[in-house]
Design a binder for these strands. Structure first.
Length: 212
DNA sequence: ACCCAGGTGGCCC
DNA sequence: GGGCCACATGGG
């Protein structure tokens, strides 16, 4: 099973090509602090929600000048944030989750580029300590917003594993280790692999990195 | 009128 | 530590 993890990656590459071609505007080297904030906010908004609905909420935030961690952290109440993110559902929890994350970044790091400089283990532990950020959202933020070496285990990854591998167990940490222990330690590989797993199941349009 | 979608925290045992 | 459950919205 071990060797097969990397083999499957090459199969996906052969079938779909580099995932980066689907989101060239967000290649690691080109990402701005704004992009990183947007990706992190999107990661929270898409929890248990179709990307289309999260996308509607992101467009509302952009229109309302709230697609900004600093602006969100500066809010005195959550009314506007709640109304703009309503399409993403869970209006009683998601706005608060976004606000808590934005406050965490601005209070402790000033901006997300400073958080990016944090040690991976420390950053992950701190993200996990925040309200509404569990392992999947933390890893999504780490891998895509901060370009850190942290593989994402989501529903698509689990289906992919069930379909192509026969893991001893399917706990989050076991599957995360399965990928991380059998791949080159390269952020580009992690990002490409995870994105291709999704593209393989639902097509390019469904990619998390769809242009806003 | 159903059913589903890149989870999470709060229960309960 | 694991198994349930509520949570909200828009699209098929």
């Amino acid at each position: 099973m071990n060797k097969k993890v990397y083999t499957l990656y090459h199969d996906l590459l052969k079938k779909h090509g580099e995932a980066e071609k689907f989101w060239p505007q967000w290649c690691a080297a080109k990402k701005t602090a704004k992009d990183r904030g947007l990706i992190a906010i999107g990661a929270i908004l898409t929890q248990r929600t179709s990307w289309n609905n999260a996308h509607l909420a992101l467009k509302n935030l952009k229109r309302g000048k709230l697609l900004s961690l600093k602006n969100i952290a500066g809010l005195t109440n959550l009314n506007k944030l709640t109304n703009l993110t309503r399409p993403a559902g869970f209006y009683q929890t998601k706005p608060r989750r976004v606000f808590e994350f934005a406050s965490f970044v601005t209070k402790n790091y000033i901006n997300i580029d400073r958080l990016k400089k944090e040690n991976l283990r420390t950053a992950r532990d701190k993200l996990l300590s925040l309200y509404g950020i569990g392992p999947e959202t933390a890893d999504t933020i780490l891998l895509y917003a901060l370009d850190k070496l942290s593989f994402v285990i989501d529903e698509y990854t689990k289906r992919f594993v069930a379909r192509h591998l026969s893991p001893e167990n399917i706990t989050y940490d076991f599957l995360k280790d399965l990928f991380e222990n059998n791949l080159p330690k390269k952020v580009g590989v992690y990002q490409n692999y995870h994105t291709l797993i999704i593209v393989d199941q639902k097509g390019e349009e469904g990619s998390f990195m769809k242009k806003l």
